[in-house]
Every structure is written in structure tokens, then in C-alpha cells.
Design a protein around this nucleic acid. Structure first.
Lengths: 134, 134
DNA sequence: TTGCTCCTCACGTCACGTGAGGTGGC
DNA sequence: TTGCTCCTCACGTCACGTGAGGTGGC
């Protein structure tokens, strides 16, 4: 039973709660914030509040630094690249879905040709659900 | 005028030539090789030979470590991600080009619809050359 | 008051880069 | 021979993580 001040409000976790959950020093969390890797919001009393999204970011950071030995400069770059890759995937996804839509409205050799290209060119995880399973 | 052994054969640059070109210690190049970041081929006498491709890889590495402060673990991951992003871009490119081809064979509202989607969804650098400039 | 929060400063450790030292082939 | 190559071992420096010390608000 936790005593004292609540460590978890609806607005997020306080620093010691996060530190305990991930077995990490509170100062390290402050370091990550100073480096711009993980910037939680603050309460009106200036206390850090970590949201669920912050915790996911933290897990990524810990994976990179603890398991893979990446330093903070590298982590920043990798997080940015991840973001860009996600965007690219989303664009690809949207585009593929549109062409699939076109596909459904056609028939005959043209349909086969489109479908062929889709399978050749689009990553499997984008086409599997709608096209190849049929 | 360089004396002694040739530092540049048609097969590639020897380590001291590369070291001089990039103002880097030969031991550092050996370190990068040991870490798997930059693995040149070898002559039959076991001498390292750096190709043009190796030098490009080296420039990327130096940019990451010198200018951005990324450590070697991070560089390895970033190089891999770059590779994957290039692949994604190639796939995207091929797909967009195919749809553009389809586009040219159509007319009327259907063409407009396809073109619209292309512009909305494909990154500008993929469409500029063939579609938007017309 | 207690137990948290905030902050700054400082130390220990480890990775990276560099140098020395000794070898061998063109 | 000279000047390169190969290798291993070792040191200096710096970033990162952790701890101490002192403050303030719920």
C-alpha cells in the first residue's frame, strides 16, 4: 500500500513511480529530459507527469541504450528516423489501399495486371489482409 | 610525389591513403572494421583495400560520429535503417511509376481521380518529374 | 513532519580514439 | 633498406549514469 502523495494521477505517473516501474534512476529520467529525448508534461506545481505515450517512448529508449548500447545522440536520430519510416508506411498504406479499391471495380486482364504489380511491389503486410487471402 | 608502394591500385585505396584523405587515424579504420561498420576487401597479401563504395560508407560514418556524436552501436543501427528506408523508397517509386503508367493510358474523370490520389499520397520527389510538371 | 518533488555539482565507469611496440611482405 | 602493412596492448578523454546535498510544495 503506497503511503504519502499519490504517485499516479489521471494526468500521468510521477517520476519515482516511473523510476520504480522501469528500474531506472530518477536522475536518469531528468537527464533524458534535459537531452530532449523524453519530455513529460508538468503539473501546475512543476512536477513531471509521464503519460502512457511517454512510457512507450521510454521503453524504446531503454531498449536502445540498455540492450543495444546506443548513446543519447544516436537515440535521438533513431527516434526521428522511426518517425519518418512510420510516415512513409502510412503513405504507402494509403496508396495501396486506394489502388486496391480501384482493383475491386475492375475485371479481366486489367485487374490481373494491377493485382500483379501490387503483390510484386507492395510489402506483404500491406496487401495480405485484403487481397492475397482471397 | 608519393614514394614507395602504390597507395592506390585499381582495386582500391590502401589504409594510409584513406587515413590521409579523411584525416583519420589508421587504427580508427581498423577499429571500424573490427566493429563491422566498414569492412574493406583485402589484397592477396592481406592488405586492406577501400573501394569508392567503402569511402562513401566511411563518409556517412564520420558524419555520424564526428558531427553528430553517435557511438558505434548507434551507427550500426542507423546504417541498417537507412538501408531499409532506401528499399521502401524504391518500392514506393516503382509502384508510383506503375500507376503513372496506368494514368497515361486513361482519360476523363478516372484519370483525374487517380492523379489526385497520386499527388496526395506519393511524396513530391516521386511524382514531380513525370506528373506535376505538366 | 514525512516523503516526495525540484535543482546543481561531482565522481566512477566504460567506449572510443590514439599511440607505442613488434612483425612481415612488396 | 625503406616505408608501408599487419597485429595486440594500453592509456586519456569524454559521455552517461548515479549519488550527494540542499530547496520547496502537497
Amino acid at each position: 500500500m503506497p503511503r504519502g502523495r499519490k504517485t499516479r494521477g489521471k494526468a500521468g505517473y510521477m517520476i519515482s513511480a516511473v523510476a520504480e516501474m522501469y528500474n531506472i534512476h530518477p536522475q536518469t529520467l531528468r537527464l533524458y529530459e534535459r537531452e530532449g529525448l523524453l519530455v513529460p508534461s508538468r503539473s501546475h506545481g512543476n512536477t513531471r507527469l509521464y503519460t502512457q505515450k511517454d512510457l512507450e517512448q521510454l521503453e524504446t529508449i531503454l531498449n536502445l541504450t540498455r540492450d543495444l548500447g546506443v548513446n543519447l545522440a544516436g537515440i535521438e536520430i533513431i527516434l526521428n528516423m522511426r518517425e519518418r519510416m512510420k510516415q512513409m508506411e502510412d503513405e504507402m498504406q494509403a496508396f495501396v489501399e486506394f489502388v486496391q479499391q480501384e482493383l475491386l471495380e475492375r475485371s479481366g486482364p486489367e485487374r490481373d495486371r494491377l493485382q500483379n504489380t501490387l503483390m510484386r511491389v507492395a510489402p506483404p503486410y500491406l496487401t495480405r489482409s485484403r487481397v492475397s487471402n482471397k
